[in-house]
Design a protein around this nucleic acid. Structure first.
Lengths: 203, 203
DNA sequence: GTCATAAAACTGACCAGTCAGTCAATTAAA
DNA sequence: TTTAATTGACTGACTGGTCAGTTTTATGAC
């Protein structure tokens, strides 16, 4: 083994965690937390169950890692795109653009997010809580700045930020729930933007 | 036994179902579907597990009955109040008034609704699906009429109806999630109304 | 009123399946 | 040869659902 290069073993285990999380998202996404089994996740990842427990302590730990890692990625990208915009209006648009693209591109993550979010609310102080709060607070900061700049009407920024996130989730939930009004040409992103922007814009 | 009066037995069993459902809402509300056990529900209702299975076929059946019965009551009341209003604006206000009052008055039902809704989305065609759809379609009809009367701007009525329901749920979810911005004087009902009304009103 | 009988309601110990998590044995790398 | 990684059979706790047996109520003959 060299200092710089990777040994064969290291090369093998390098991406184990990521592989496990991808398998976990597939299984959790397809079956839901309750029906997903650790055996299934291990099989999907192509490793033995015991190996899985070398990397994560519990089913719970796998679940949270799988969910938060992608959620964090989505938020980081949204934040980057928002910062590239000047007006609050364009920041909101950028945020929606990134989030819709992200959720559309990863069906399994989307399913986890939409179907397990409610249950998460039970776990005060759970691993997802701090992250969700951080994301909401960032968006609230943006909205608050918009209020102070006169671009938005006076409002409870934190509530509005949460409302925006709920609207995004709601549009996708409608699909799973098999709701009508989901014409192929229905543009959820545009719909949420129109509703929210009209709801918060000044005048 | 008389034709009119109830025998002692009938009087006893008359409210069994309702008692079971109330116990079920308490247990499901406190623990969530997965952690709730049928034994717990039976104990809460003060009957043996076997008795419970005389009234409902499965844990699932108890859950759906407990959730949909209250949901139906809430909707019926909202619908009645809406019909007493002339303008779409006041119909929306009435709907929110009833729904907020209802959810605030029944903590256990609220918890079930907020925390288990996502999981419901998995069950295409489940018992709650048709009900939720019916409620959404009623609200969509009201909104569509508003569009045609020029009171609302042109929009996808079904999407807007769902969005409104998601907003209500979202405001309550914020509490469970321990989100900030929940000052004691934060008026969720007013907030949702302002956001939504501004979002859909004409001009 | 009361006693025998039938019917309905109820009970809770039990069963059978499930599954998260463990660990002694095995394999591969250093 | 040593060390690290991996395996998968196994365990033990849990719980949805059952059912043989018990209790309660209703009925009706006397």
């Amino acid at each position: 083994m060299t200092l710089q290069g990777k040994t064969k073993r290291q090369a093998l285990t390098e991406f184990r965690e990521a592989e496990i999380l991808e398998a976990a998202r597939k299984v959790f996404g397809e079956h839901g937390y309750a029906s997903a089994t650790v055996d299934l996740i291990a099989a999907e990842a192509g490793i033995a169950k015991g190996t899985l427990y070398l990397y994560y302590d519990s089913k719970d730990a796998i679940f949270w890692a799988a969910l938060t890692s992608r959620f964090r990625e989505m938020h980081a990208e949204a934040r980057r795109e928002m910062e590239a915009q000047a007006s609050v209006r364009e920041k909101i648009r950028a945020s929606l653009r990134v989030r819709f693209a992200f959720l559309k591109s990863d069906e399994q993550f989307l399913r986890m997010y939409v179907t397990e979010f409610g249950a998460m609310c039970r776990l005060q102080g759970g691993p997802m809580q701090a992250l969700y709060r951080e994301v909401a607070e960032h968006m609230a900061g943006v909205l608050q700045a918009g209020v102070e700049a006169g671009e938005l009407r006076p409002l409870n920024a934190m509530a509005a930020a949460t409302a925006l996130m709920e609207l995004v989730k709601g549009v996708f939930a409608m699909r799973f729930a098999g709701m009508p009004g989901q014409d192929p040409d229905f543009d959820g992103e545009q719909f949420v933007f129109d509703l929210f922007w009209n709801g918060v814009a000044a005048q």
